[in-house]
């Protein structure tokens, strides 16, 4: 008896999806057109796109401003090293084991940190990450405080030549980033995504309209831990070496990720992608300036916060109403043409 239709796609999202598809094909072929340096850089970009998208889901949608996601990056990395060194698991398989294990660990962590609100929650998550770092430095079989390298045998087992290994890691990084992004899109288009978007916009109203806010936040926290740990495992597989300080670095895995998300546009799925591009362009062009680079980055963050608090993509949405991915539900009436936007 459906009289009306509901469309997800708009013209801008059709263009967006086409552009994304073309870009993905070009990126998938990068081993044939890029040098080693380019591949490494791109793989790092993918890891940050994924980390920022996950943090965006957590903070931008579910309102859980965590500054402790390095807990799960490091946990993922250490799980990979532990699985490879102690249980002789294939490194690629280890990435996919690290995800669910981290999700299970996230359940009691959430039970603990969810007792805190707002700024206290943020600090609480950071404390958890520090606890993880200290625990990691106690495990002597994984190098204790000074860290450990991935055994050569395991590295060779992945692919016989260095080039084949680099290609494999590159494609793995691309695939993981795509999996994370597709999962987020699927989630946001689902019934739960509708609830999450409502929570993003107004928690009180969401609750009063029948949405179980706490339960959804819990689910998001655990899912984000799952994804973050997988990306963490990948990052340290690429680095081939891990130590507590690099694995649980608040600077690398949270401060930069927050910068990326906020600059690009928090609470928008496109935001972290735009933000990562801006971040890496800045890093590649300004890194020769030494500490000036960090000062410029800080200045950019301040300027964006003041003039475009919703980030670059937020500004675009406000001005042009674009969406790069078909997430919105648009009503098309049967008898009339669509109500105009």
């Amino acid at each position: 008896m459906s009289e009306h239709r509901v469309e997800h796609a708009t013209r801008s999202s059709q263009v967006g999806v086409a552009l994304i598809a073309v870009t993905l094909i070009a990126l998938a072929l990068a081993p044939f057109w890029g040098d080693r340096q380019t591949l490494r850089l791109l793989a790092e970009v993918y890891a940050f796109v994924a980390l920022a998208s996950l943090w965006n889901l957590l903070a931008g949608y579910a309102g859980l401003v965590s500054v402790g996601q390095q807990a799960f990056v490091g946990l993922g990395g250490y799980l990979l090293f532990a699985l490879v060194i102690m249980f002789d698991v294939h490194p690629v398989l280890a990435i996919f084991i690290a995800g669910p294990v981290a999700a299970i660990i996230a359940i009691p962590v959430a039970a603990l940190t969810f007792r805190l609100r707002g700024a206290y929650f943020a600090i609480g998550t950071w404390v958890v990450a520090e606890v993880f770092r200290l625990l990691a430095s106690q495990v002597s079989v994984l190098g204790g405080g000074s860290g450990i390298s991935l055994p050569a045998a395991a590295v060779i087992a992945m692919a016989p030549t260095r080039q084949a290994r680099e290609f494999a890691i590159y494609w793995l990084a691309l695939a993981l980033a795509v999996i994370v992004l597709v999962a987020i899109v699927v989630l946001l288009r689902s019934r739960h995504g509708l609830a999450l978007t409502a929570i993003r916009d107004n928690e009180t109203a969401a609750q009063s309209n029948g949405i179980g806010v706490v339960r959804i936040k819990y689910i998001v926290y655990v899912l984000v831990a799952f994804g973050t740990a997988m990306i963490g495992a990948l990052i340290f597989l690429q680095k081939l070496r891990i130590s507590p300080d690099t694995a649980f670095s608040v600077n690398d895995w949270t401060a930069f990720v927050i910068f990326i998300t906020v600059i690009g546009g928090i609470g928008r799925i496109e935001g972290p992608i735009i933000g990562t591009i801006i971040f890496f362009v800045m890093r590649q062009t300004l890194s020769d300036l030494g500490s000036m680079y960090l000062l410029i980055m800080g200045a950019v963050a301040i300027v964006v916060m003041l003039w475009a608090p919703k980030g670059v993509w937020g500004l675009i949405v406000e001005r042009y109403g674009w969406q790069a991915l078909p997430l919105q539900r648009r009503l098309v009436l049967k008898d009339k043409s669509r109500p105009d936007a």
Binding site: V6, L194, A195, A198, D201, A205, N209, G210, R329, R330
Partner: peptide
């Protein structure tokens, strides 16, 4: 207390689906 980033239609769909 609208869900300001969502469309008017989506606002009502949220309430109808969850409420």
């Amino acid at each position: 207390q609208p869900f300001s980033g969502m469309t008017v239609f989506e606002n009502v769909v949220v309430a109808a689906a969850f409420g």
